[in-house]
Structure formats: structure tokens, C-alpha cells
Amino acid sequence: MADTLFIILAVLTVASALLVVVNKNAVNAALGLLISLLGLAGLFVLLDAPLLAFVLLMVYAGAVVALFLFIIMLLDTTPGAAKPFSKMTLVATLIGAGLLFTGIYSLAHRAVLPAAPATLPVPTMKNYAEQLFTTYLLPVQVVGFMLLIAMLGVIVLSKKFDQTEGAK
């Protein structure tokens, strides 16, 4: 059962990711990203991380992709006659293929992967919370500041001019 699900989800994820890369239309690309996300969320569930799957869907599907779609609609960029690819195609494909090959090669040569321990800690909400608020409290605080400057940055970059103080 799990194996079948894995294959289905993996194919779904990769295929939709391919859609993001090759599709001419930005809207379709965003939809591809969305489907890819769904596949990933499914894989997360397979990996015993349903909470992460939920967060992924919330943040990405709920916010990021929605934002993308919103912006695409807002900017109304017509999928013009221009080709969607630049002339760097060959280079890019080569590098990408190289990366792929590296990944497969490393796996095929059995890069020494650590074996699974006997007991797996259950990733419950409580476990995550404990980690986040003890060990990783400092990065959590830092991320808070990061979100603050991101918010301020978006405001600065989008606010109307005449209210700014330099104008007086």
C-alpha cells in the first residue's frame, strides 16, 4: 500500500514540477506548483510527518501559491509570443543533468547512509513544540525578527509615496 502510494505521489510531484518548468503560461505553472505541493504533502504523511504536511499546505498552498496567482492576475502578463526559454537552455540543461547524475551516482554508489535506529521518536505536536521552544528558541526569536523586517520591507516597497516623511 505504502509503496503504491509512494510511486503515485512521486510521479505526481515530479510531473507537476516539470509542468512548472516547461509550461508557457504562468498561471499553469502556479497550478503545477500547487499540485506538486499536494504530492509533497502526501509524501510527508508517508514519512510520518502529518503535522508538517499540514503546515506545508497551509503556508504554501494557502499563502505562497495564492500570492503567486494573485500577483499573476494583478500584473496581467499576457503569455506573449516570446519563447519562454532563454538561450541559456543548453547550459542550464547540462548543469541540471549534471546535478541529476550526481544525485543518482551518489545513491547508486551507496553513499554510506546512516541506518535507522531501533526506536523512532514519535513526531507529535508536543515533540515539535518542545524542540522549538527549548533547543531552538533562539532561532525562533530570530525568525520573528526576520518576519518583522520582511513585513516592513513589503510595506516600504509598496506604500504610496505622498505619505512618506521625506516629502515634506
Binding site: V142, F145, G153, E165
Partner: peptide, 30 residues
């Protein structure tokens, strides 16, 4: 320019603090 100023200094200060943490971090997450 006519850009807001306080936010600029705010971001500079936050980035400064992060830079100092970055140089002292001993853990890839941090």
C-alpha cells in the same frame, strides 16, 4: 529621497544583530 527613513535604520539594526549571530553560530540551523 522621499523614502521613509526609520524603517531603513530598523532593518540595518536587525541585520547587524543577525550578522553578529551568524559569525558566532555553531549549528547549521542557527
Amino acid at each position: 529621497t522621499r523614502m521613509p527613513r526609520v524603517e531603513f535604520y530598523h532593518i540595518v539594526l536587525v541585520v547587524t544583530a543577525a550578522l553578529m549571530l551568524l559569525a558566532q553560530s555553531n549549528h547549521f540551523v542557527m
